[in-house]
Design a protein around this nucleic acid. Structure first.
Lengths: 359, 359
DNA sequence: GGCACGGGTGTGATCGCTAACAGCGAGAGC
DNA sequence: GCTCTCGCTGTTAGCGATCACACCCGTGCC
């Protein structure tokens, strides 16, 4: 806009354009190699029907001119952008950030580009806006890292045939494919571990009530207690932050009957550990604590945290694999698939038998 | 490549295509609104010379057809992709992830799309590959979140005129613009704080020696000790991880003369805190610890960590602002700018006067 | 010799959009 | 009354790639 480019037709000085500010294009390469632009295209796309000698000549010319193919032109004609979209929320947290990384890494290896659209909140409008932006970019598929119904519902508003995957959450009734870990099973692992140690019951510091992941963890915890005939203590609403863990932890620390706490993520556990420490209750001697996620830091908490491991990078990779399989056969209206990964319990020093039952 | 798309041409049934699988284009909107495609384009681009009535008619048609402009076509002709590239490394850590978020957020508000290229390692080849991928995408500028010389040098290999910004690190001799915090000043703040409390000297757990950020922090620490006439203890090589902090911390914990430790980031401090705890040295009563970054979790460490605050989101925003100003005037060969933000010391409970000088 | 075949290559049309220019009425100025 | 401007709109020509098709030429076969 600033300076009008000189009319391109203009002066054909016959051979070598003096200085082409915009890089070279296929025709330039073709001219230098003494072939047609179509042959250059064939070399670029690895068509078999090009003589080896010609191919080399073209490759040399491309190198000499530092040629880079214009993806916009390619996209325009092929209608394939080779670009995938990611919708993310709170991508500063370890989990989402790791999934983003896993996705991007897998996409690159599959020859795709990735554009991200983070949403500032989980309002419907933000999600639709993000979807719209990605569609404008002609993405060939969308992965949403934002495990709330608002988001997965928003995904339904994509043009028909655009494959979508919700990772980390999402309910299986969705029109989208989903990839997630089995949160209920993870919560069961954690709770059962504490019961097995001899704790009469297990308290729970939950995540936000409107997150399916948080609800599933509550559910797994509750099921396990119920199955064991243990009392089911009340659950207070919270966020995913250490601050919340601290607040809830402070409350629980005042109750001497509390000997075991299962936290819905590691941050909550961190806050709970501090609250317990300040209340003078020793972990794990007096109170056992279990987290969820197995963030790298959790191995260095005081004490090192027993926690449910979630392989975020793997989640990212799997979601991308699912998306690509969806791109592969768009016409085939097979129902969206749902991948559920099994979590594992990582045992560390924050859990032990209750005081009365120590060896 | 997997499955050949069916030939696009297909059946032209004369007038209204029965089901247009590929969404509507400008001509469809034009036909429905009874205008030319150029008028539609004018409405889309807010040209002034369109009658209000016509504009509304076009907007109605666009809504009715759920029209979305094809960005590839627009990019092809305008040579502006409205897309920015981000090169990231270890984007699972809080710092990089936050910067990424800050950049994406600012880009969106400025009307740009963002594509990310994470690099699996800091090898030169990876960086060049990432740059190449982004250039193919016709990005209008690149922000690199990867504060090592390998990366910033790789940025020099962009086509002339493509603005680049290195955020979080990078030396000022660069051809790229840079945005970073004043690491030396941050280290001085931390060290001086400990000296002011009365500690005879301050030990340092440093980051990787080949990261400029880590080196600058060492430098600030050393300067401050030197200016105060304090002894400068040796520094051992490390990584940025809690594990490293634990290892270094264990070593320092054995030396009873150690009363103050400045860690190059919060993860290192977390590891050090655990090592000190296990060695039976109380923080802050016997040993004071200061971190760097002020990650959200650090307020909930045991004890809550005194640390140097780094506003990652702001770094991201500033780097984007710098990039956009670079895009604004590409012809003007002004030297790249360098923005340096001042860090702040966040006082918490991990620092206190040494045992002998307690009130 | 004539003809089908197929590898290797060139030609034209096209994707959806914007830039440049042309056209066309209506009101202003002489 | 005639030009001149100006607001509004349509027409045409690309952007840089790919696709469909035509073409050439050597080979193998009848």
């Amino acid at each position: 806009m600033t300076a009008d480019p000189p009319p391109t037709g203009g002066i054909e000085t016959g051979d070598a354009a003096p200085v082409r500010p915009r890089g070279s294009v296929m025709r330039d390469v073709a001219r230098l190699a003494g072939v047609s632009h179509q042959t250059v295209s064939r070399v670029l796309n690895n068509h078999p029907n090009v003589r080896q000698e010609t191919r080399l000549r073209v490759l040399d010319a491309m190198r000499a001119l530092n040629y880079r193919r214009n993806l916009a032109a390619r996209t325009l004609v092929t209608r394939r952008s080779r670009t995938l979209g990611i919708i993310g929320f709170e991508t500063t947290l370890f989990g989402p950030a790791s999934m983003l990384y896993g996705i991007e890494d897998a996409a690159r290896q599959a020859g795709y580009f990735v554009t991200v659209a983070t949403i500032p909140d989980l309002e419907r409008a933000s999600v639709l806006d993000a979807v719209d932006r990605l569609c404008q970019q002609s993405v060939e598929g969308i992965v949403a890292i934002a495990p709330k119904p608002t988001v997965t519902n928003g995904l339904h508003h994509t043009p028909a045939g655009l494959p979508t995957v919700a990772v980390g959450g999402g309910t299986e009734t969705d029109a989208s494919a989903t990839v997630r870990i089995d949160n209920t099973a993870g919560a069961r692992l954690a709770t059962q571990h504490l019961l097995d140690l001899g704790h009469p019951t297990v308290h729970h510091i939950a995540g936000p009530a409107d997150w399916p992941e948080a609800r599933e963890r509550v559910e797994g915890w509750r099921q396990t207690l119920y199955a064991a005939g243990a009392a089911v203590p009340p659950v207070a609403p919270a966020t995913w932050t250490a601050r919340s863990g601290y607040e809830q932890g402070s409350r629980l620390a005042r109750d001497p009957a509390v000997t075991a706490i299962f936290c819905a993520n590691d941050q909550l556990a961190l806050g709970a550990l501090r609250a317990l420490h300040e209340a003078g209750r020793r972990v794990p001697e007096q109170v056992s604590v279990v987290g969820f996620d197995d963030t790298p830091d959790s191995a260095y908490y005081l004490p090192p945290l027993t926690t449910v491991r979630q392989d975020f990078a793997e989640l990212g990779r799997r979601s991308l694999a699912l998306l690509l399989s969806g791109i592969g056969r768009q016409r085939d209206p097979r129902p969206p698939q749902h991948v559920v990964l099994a979590p594992e319990l990582t045992l560390r020093a924050s859990t032990a038998p209750p005081a009365g039952r120590r060896a």
